[in-house]
Amino acid sequence: MTISWVLEILDAELLTGQGAEGRELASACGSDLMSDVLCLRSAPNLLLTALTNPQCVRTAEMAEIAAICFVQGKKPPAETLELARRNGLPLLATGLSMFTACGRLFAAGLRCCGEGA
């Protein structure tokens, strides 16, 4: 599933990473606890979170996550956007709740990393 498809499914906006819309995302996870994300054996390609501070971008950097989508209409502060731009990390934002966003992506075929389809 490409980023541009995720943007469509979640009715989301691309905040950073213009030009990366074609990037493939094969797995996702939803969490506001960065340590829970970091302890996953294989990192997901897409992280859905309501956490908007720069630590989510750091977490993505360390765990090699390819994109982050903020849920619940949350918009990240300038430091987060700046760090994401520097790291070349696409940030998405959707007004949907975490539950609905995950549900829509799951229904569209996206799975958690390490789980069978």
Binding site: D32, L33, M34, S35, D36, L38, C39, T49, L51, N53, Q55, C56, T59
Partner: peptide, 15 residues
């Protein structure tokens, strides 16, 4: 609130 302090730090380092 910053997404840390959930008691996974040290276990995470260990794994």
């Amino acid at each position: 609130e910053l997404g840390f302090g959930a008691g996974m730090g040290l276990p995470n380092i260990r794994s």
